[in-house]
Write a protein that binds this DNA or RNA. Sequence first.
DNA 1: GATCGGGAAGACAGGTCTGTCTAGTCTTGT
DNA 2: ACAAGACTAGACAGACCTGTCTTCCCGATC
Lengths: 202, 202
Amino acid sequence: MPSKATTASKPSARERLLAAADELFYSEGVQTVGIDRIVQKAGVAKASLYNLFGSKEELVQAYLDARHADTRAQVERALTRFRTPRERLLGVFDAQGQLFTEPGFNGCAHMTASAEAQPGSPVEGAADRYRLWVRTLFTDLAREAGVADPEDLARQLHLLYDGAGVSARMDRDPSAATTARAAAAALFDAAVKDKELVDAGR
Amino acid sequence: MPSKATTASKPSARERLLAAADELFYSEGVQTVGIDRIVQKAGVAKASLYNLFGSKEELVQAYLDARHADTRAQVERALTRFRTPRERLLGVFDAQGQLFTEPGFNGCAHMTASAEAQPGSPVEGAADRYRLWVRTLFTDLAREAGVADPEDLARQLHLLYDGAGVSARMDRDPSAATTARAAAAALFDAAVKDKELVDAGR
DNA sequence: GATCGGGAAGACAGGTCTGTCTAGTCTTGT
DNA sequence: ACAAGACTAGACAGACCTGTCTTCCCGATC
């Protein structure tokens, strides 16, 4: 059984390819990194890459989906530390701030990859899936917190989340996450206050 | 006098190159569009491009600086329509919304170009100049409105501005600007209320 | 021990890229 | 009329790209 390989002995060709793709694609961009550099870094034959993934585009898609799963796991794990709905909602930005300070951080992978992609490429699908997850996460957290219009607040928080990712990369400023967190707190508190006014008024 | 050419007779080679670069680079990306396509679309010899700009990188930089100037002019013109400081501050997002609905809109050019650029390229400088202008614009508007900490509010509004640009492109949803405007209004009003509390308390 | 398949190594094809260079044309000022 | 400079047209070099194909090796399974 060559796949799975949860036994740590030696990573499979697929895993080594994904690890090399992650490192190179993320730090240097999808377009500028060629197939040859990936197979060389992974220590894998070029034919294996094409047998396993079919094309460069599909490798990029797999790289993005793996990033998506990692981010999701990291955020969801971070959120278990918080108790109140408000803390959990703002905790997303705490988790984001941790991502920003990781060595080699270079912005949101889905954003940079989609900026390089051709319209209609599978990269767009991966980006859509990622964005849908973020949106749903914020909507659920807002609903749990009992705000009047969870979808509306989620859209606003998503803007802050995206903006923080942009600023952290382009301004080389990881503190964008704390700025976003403060703004999110203000928006949340305003939304709660609106709800209270409505409830009292009816 | 071949340059300037405000007389409409025939655009100079430089202007035709910049127009072609703007159209192709913006809609398809900097990396995927080759020099040959630009000189063909501009109806210009390749040697002229290299005489005028020196390299593709410098053409990209000129393209970004021209976009920067256009956006700046459009936003500043839109802001003249508003009178109160609050309206002027929120008017930035109205102007952004207009940009989002223009035909062929494809996100913030500086963001996508910098996502494709190599670190240290002149593209980063152009992006930094653009971002500094946005930041300064928000800071000045916040100061004119008399909030307690204009720089802090400007950082938050800049996040919304960036996030709206990302969402408008990746979600294909121009209404991100109105979402950002509503969030900006809530943040602004909260900042003003804080100021009033502080002023009353001292 | 023989067979068989996953993978390594790399040549190769066909195309595209940036940037240079040569040679000729057109416009403009004197 | 003539000189100077801007521009056109396109061949060319050298590098790099993706994707295919062949050849060989090694390890596991019957």
